[in-house]
Design a protein around this nucleic acid. Structure first.
Lengths: 231, 231
DNA sequence: GACTCTCTGTGACGTGCGTCACGCCTCCAC
DNA sequence: GTGGAGGCGTGACGCACGTCACAGAGAGTC
């Protein structure tokens, strides 16, 4: 790999907080372990049940993590935005990939092979802790999704999805809005059908909890939050 | 802590493969970081939403990991048998416990506080990898549970629970049997009601897929496995 | 053995929501 | 603009399963 592309990788890696405090030299070495990859919008970055043992550090774009049933039903596990990493589960065990990762936009990522993980961890022990942290967060998320499926009805789950997405949007952009997600995608996040998602959203509109401007949903965070408390 | 109790801890820790190759000295140091705890059958080892930042190394007994809804419905996430560890999710982030851990039998465990984690990892870097491995496995399990809830009906999920438990029993004892679990507990593992679990099990009995001897269920692994394939 | 407590089996009933069906929007391409 | 494809809204129907209810079986205690 050329020195200049290493410098390019190194620059991108700085965006990850876990690498922010590395020396130039260490960062360059780390960069040398990684390979740069690009995927067009819509392509599969990882596919469920395939072999593969590499973490991906997403530096540009947006991906969807999801699983699909034999009969074609889809359940979305997560949407990730750069900077983020995924695929870390294959690092230690040799199990096949447990979900699809699909590029929602054109994306750029760096891949770190499992074989180089221990080298990377020696360079930056913090990496191990970051991975543990990410995995912990994921287990927590999964538990709360599972609780949702086991304890709450579809209506409730749709509302929770809207609240989460709108809250995230409020925190990053300042507006509590859901956009760029179709009703189908909202449904896959809630583990229910497109029709049910549509019905719930219409009803929330009628109740004045959300406003639907064209294909965007503006959420009254307080009202929706309250509604979710009291059921 | 006395030298003798350290030796006792060290002995118990040897049972964990990740500590098997440590020198006596390192193991003793590690043992010095841990505290020994006992809990009687039925008691709560960890409680959901409580603060707490320690991993527990279970050296004797059996625990149940579960979450409970506000209205008292229960969803079992896992049953763990010594040697196993739990509570590792609180090590890195400061989030409250995301599930209850309840002693199913009298248990003994060693607790390692999060503050001592980096010391422990320096002593035995393998520990970090083990934690990553455990967490990965848990994420996988959660994903597959979630798929179950989203894609399959209650009948199917009950059958899957029976198959898993019986298979585990077959591998450890040589007999494909489900025992020590009530129908209620099976239901909480499948995320359904006690009545549904009962009905499914009776029906499987009538179909000759399982035999119910008293309060034990003997499973025809092949037949049940086939039944789960073809739906 | 008798008593008690928990566990199990099964009927009846109601309903949430998945599915099918179909017409109307919205957005983009040209 | 016009056309087409995908997204959305809503009615109708059916059934899986949660819930209530109660009787019978097992297992542990005295």
């Amino acid at each position: 790999m050329s020195t200049s592309s290493r410098a390019y990788i190194a620059g991108k890696l700085r965006c990850f907080t876990m690498f922010a405090d590395l020396t130039e030299g260490d960062l360059a070495t780390l960069a040398g372990l990684m390979t740069f990859k690009q995927f067009p919008k819509g392509s599969f970055v990882l596919v469920q049940n395939a072999q593969g043992a590499a973490v991906y550090f997403l530096v540009a774009g947006r991906v969807k993590v999801s699983v699909t049933s034999p009969v074609g039903k889809e359940l979305a596990l997560n949407y990730l935005e750069a900077p983020a990493h995924f695929g870390e589960m294959s690092l230690v065990d040799a199990e096949p990939r447990s979900a699809d990762v699909i590029a929602v936009t054109d994306i750029e990522a760096f891949a770190l092979d499992a074989r180089d993980l221990s080298t990377a961890i020696q360079l930056q022990p913090e990496l191990a802790l970051t991975l543990i942290g990410t995995l912990s967060r994921r287990v927590r998320e999964m538990i709360s999704r599972l609780e949702g499926m086991a304890f709450h009805d579809a209506t409730h789950r749709i509302m929770r999805v809207l609240l989460n997405v709108a809250t995230a949007s409020y925190e990053s952009v300042g507006v509590p809005i859901v956009e760029g997600l179709t009703h189908y995608e909202i449904a896959t996040l809630a583990g229910t059908s497109r029709e049910t998602a549509s019905r719930v959203i219409s009803q929330l509109g009628r109740d004045g909890i959300v406003g639907t401007k064209g294909r965007k949903i503006v959420v009254d965070l307080l009202a929706l939050g309250e509604l979710l408390e009291t059921d």
